[in-house]
Computed example of a mutant assay.
Amino acid sequence: MSMRSVSLTRMLTLVSVLTAAGIITVLLLQGHSSAAESHARMSSVADSTSSSAAPASAAAPASAKPSAKPKPSATAPAAPAANAALRSAVAGANGAVSVSVTDLGTGRSLTYGAPGHGFATASIVKLDILSTLLLQAQDQGTVLTAAQRSLATTMIENSDNNAATALWNQIGQESGLNTANRRFGLVSTSGGTDGNWGLTSTTAADQVRLLRQVFTGDSLLSSASRSYVQGLLGQVESDQRWGVSAAASGSDYAVKNGWLPRSATGLWVINSIGMVQRDGHELLIAAVSDGNLSESSGIALVQSVARAAADSLNGS
Results as ranks from 00 to 15, higher is better:
E282F: 08
V276W: 12
L199S: 06
D218Q: 14
S52K: 14
M1T: 10
A96Q: 11
A120I: 01
S219H: 10
S289D: 13
S227L: 04
S73M: 04
T9N: 06
V187C: 01
N314C: 07
L127W: 00
D160K: 09
D160A: 10
A246Y: 12
V26K: 02
R108N: 09
S316V: 12
N83V: 02
L86N: 04
S312E: 08
S67T: 10
G31P: 02
E282Q: 12
S16T: 15
Y228Q: 10
A254S: 11
S7A: 14
L283Q: 02
V45N: 08
S219A: 10
L28Y: 04
V187L: 13
N83E: 01
S48C: 06
V99K: 03
A56Q: 10
D218S: 13
L29K: 01
R183F: 02
S109I: 01
V302H: 03
W197T: 06
E237M: 13
T165K: 12
A85G: 00
A53N: 13
A120Q: 12
R41V: 03
K126D: 09
L27G: 07
P61V: 06
S263Y: 11
S263H: 12
A91V: 00
N94E: 09
W259V: 15
S34P: 00
N94Q: 07
L8S: 14
K69Y: 00
T111Q: 03
S109W: 09
M3I: 14
A308M: 08
R278Q: 14
G22V: 02
S63V: 08
R278S: 15
S67W: 05
A166V: 04
L14K: 11
G231W: 04
V15Q: 13
M1N: 08
M3C: 06
A62I: 04
A164M: 04
L14S: 15
T142Q: 10
P61A: 07
W168V: 00
N83S: 00
D279G: 06
A54D: 10
V125W: 00
L14Q: 09
L28W: 05
R226I: 05
T13I: 11
P55Q: 11
V45H: 11
L233N: 07
G141W: 06
V6W: 10
D47L: 08
G105S: 11
S150F: 04
S304T: 15
L127M: 06
Q136T: 00
V288P: 03
L233K: 04
M42D: 12
A21D: 00
A224E: 15
T111W: 02
S297N: 11
P115A: 14
E295H: 15
F215C: 04
K71Y: 00
L28V: 02
A166M: 09
S5Y: 12
L221M: 05
S251I: 12
L221E: 03
A35M: 03
Y228L: 06
L313W: 01
D311W: 07
A91H: 06
R307Y: 01
D139W: 04
R209Q: 08
N196D: 12
V214S: 05
T165G: 11
P80K: 02
S222W: 13
L130M: 05
P55G: 08
S67P: 00
A54P: 00
A246D: 14
N162Q: 11
A254T: 02
G280S: 07
R108C: 03
A146D: 14
